[in-house]
Structures are given as C-alpha cells and as structure tokens.
C-alpha cells in the first residue's frame, strides 16, 4: 500500500497563492479531489506528480520526496488533463513507447494488457490525433497503466466522456482500487466524485476545506444555510408567519419579495407550504438563491 503525504504544502506564483498550507494523506482506494475550477487542484496534482516544486512544505510518496526524483515514476501513473499527444503515432505505438520508456521486460505484452484494460483494442491501429476526446482520455489512461503503478493520479479524467465511457472508467478505477492501489482523481462535479470516491478531499481557493467520506461532505453541503427568494400574495404576512414558526434564521422583506435564510433545509421546505396554506397566502415563486457549486464551496471555506 502506497501513501502520498502532503505536509504544509503551499505553492505561490508571484503574488498569487495557488495552494495554501495543505496537509493531507492519500492512501489505498479511490480518493476524489473536489473543488471548483481554479481552486488549485491541478497545481496540487502537479506537485504530487513531481512536476512542480512546493514553495513550502513537502510532498512524499511513502516517505520519499517526489520532487527531483524521477525514480518515483516507476510507481506513479499519471493521466494529465492536457489533450496533446504524439498525434502521428497510432494508439498501439503510443502506449508501446510509454512501455519502452519504462524499460519494462516485455513492453508488447504490457501494451496489449493496458489497451485491453481501457477497451481500446478496436481503435489501437488508428492515429491518436484522430481520436475523439473520450478515446484520447482512454489511451492516456492506458499509458498511465502500462507499468501497473501502485499510485494513479488523474486530472479531470471524466471530462469529455459520454455516459458509457464514464461507467467504464468508474468500473476500471474501482477495480484498480480493489487491487489495493492508490487512486486519486480531481473533479469539480460532486456527483461524479461521490459515485466512486471512498474519500473526498475538498479544495477551495487553494485551501483544504473539508475531508471525509461522501456522506460527510454531502451533509456539510446540505446543512449549510440555504437562501430562498420568495414572492407571494402577501409577503408581509408570510414573513411574520415564518418568523413566528421559527423554521428560518432570517427573513428580509423588500419590494421584490422575501429573502429567507434557513439553516435547517428539510424543516423549512416542509414548513413553508403549511404556513402559506394556514394563512391563506398564495405562493407565486420559491427560488433557491445560490445553489451554485461555488457558493457551496465558499460556505465550506468560511466555516
């Protein structure tokens, strides 16, 4: 079992802090690195894969620093997000070259196995430059698997995949994790991550915002204060009823309608129709105000 350990890792580019004092340990199984775009996921992955020096802190694989240590690539498989491949090579040649660069004893056999694992046998004789986005993603996956690494790092691997390819990759990652490998992938979509990741690490604005299994992360996200915009036949009366009921934390009244903040999401959505009916107030519109992922993340950071 392999452990990636980040201790007090920061990375800045000039005045911009991309990753801010992150400490985490990633072990066997599937871990999802979740965060909105620009949160520093790629920077963190670059440091984990030895392609960027941390400005502060250390990144180690089983106690050995990964920076300036090309030997770690015997044990790390990397699936970069970049689309650029060696376009004039066929899928087979591309994976074979990766196997040869790893100086494997039988590169052809390793290539055959890796291509079969990503289900690309039918397309292996075509040039990678002509592959679709999903196929490129899979052939990249094959290059990362060709030396059967203990650690697999994937940057946004589900981007551009259709549902069938997504299912296939989910299965593949799960089977790799079942073999005891350490699999880490980044994503900005919670649903994607919670489908397979045993552990979720949330990164927001360069900070390590939350960590835990998907239930914990889900709960953190649903228990945060929710904002609603409401318009009704009698806003003033409805506001009074909501305040009296106690199911919301704050209500503000304006000409545009009501703004309600409720920290107990379940309780409020049940109370609202009941209060409206009891007071004979017709509801015109109920809109959750800021359900965007960014606001969810923003809440996690400000906690």
């Amino acid at each position: 079992m392999s452990l990636i350990e980040l201790t007090g890792v920061s990375r800045w580019f000039g005045n911009v802090v991309a990753v801010n004092d992150v400490t985490m340990t990633i072990g066997a199984g599937v871990t999802g690195l979740l965060g909105p775009n620009g949160a520093g996921k790629s920077t963190l992955l670059s440091m984990m894969s030895g392609f960027l020096a941390p400005s502060a802190g250390t990144v180690t694989l089983d106690g050995v620093p990964v920076w300036l240590n090309t030997d770690v690539y015997r044990r790390i498989g990397l699936v970069p997000e970049t689309e650029a491949l060696y376009d004039s090579l066929t899928g087979w040649e591309f994976v074979l070259i990766n196997a040869q660069l790893h100086q494997l004893p039988d590169p052809a056999a390793a290539t055959r196995r890796a291509i079969a694992a990503v289900d690309m046998v039918d397309a292996q004789k075509r040039e990678v430059g002509k592959y679709s986005k999903g196929m490129k993603q899979r052939i990249k996956m094959a290059t990362a698997l060709v030396h059967e690494p203990e650690v697999l790092l994937l940057d946004e691997p589900f981007n551009g995949m259709d549902p069938r390819q997504r299912m296939h990759l989910l299965d593949l990652l799960q089977s790799l994790a079942a073999e005891g490998r350490t699999v880490l992938f980044s994503s900005h979509i919670l649903e994607e991550v919670e489908q397979i990741a045993g552990t979720i690490e949330v990164l927001v604005a360069g900070r390590h915002a939350a960590s835990g299994d998907f239930r914990k992360i889900r709960r953190l996200m649903t228990e945060r204060p929710h904002q609603y915009s409401i318009t009704s036949a009698d806003d003033r009366k409805l506001a009074a009823a909501i305040i009296a009921d106690g199911s919301a934390d704050a209500v503000s009244l304006s000409v545009k309608g009501l703004e309600v903040q409720a920290s107990d999401f379940g309780r409020f959505v049940q109370a609202l129709p009941r209060l409206a009916q009891a007071g004979h107030i017709q509801l015109f519109e109920v809109t959750p105000a800021d359900e965007s992922l960014e606001s969810v993340f923003a809440y996690l950071v400000s906690r």
């Binding site: 090309t70 990397l78 970069p80 970049t82």
Partner: peptide, 13 residues
C-alpha cells in the same frame, strides 16, 4: 503543447 509530460513522467534521468 505539454506532451513532453509523457517523456518526463518516466524513471529516466
């Protein structure tokens, strides 16, 4: 274009 990563992410000096 970044494809050099396939050469650099290898146990080669």
């Amino acid at each position: 274009d970044g494809s050099i990563v396939y050469l650099l992410a290898k146990p080669l000096p």
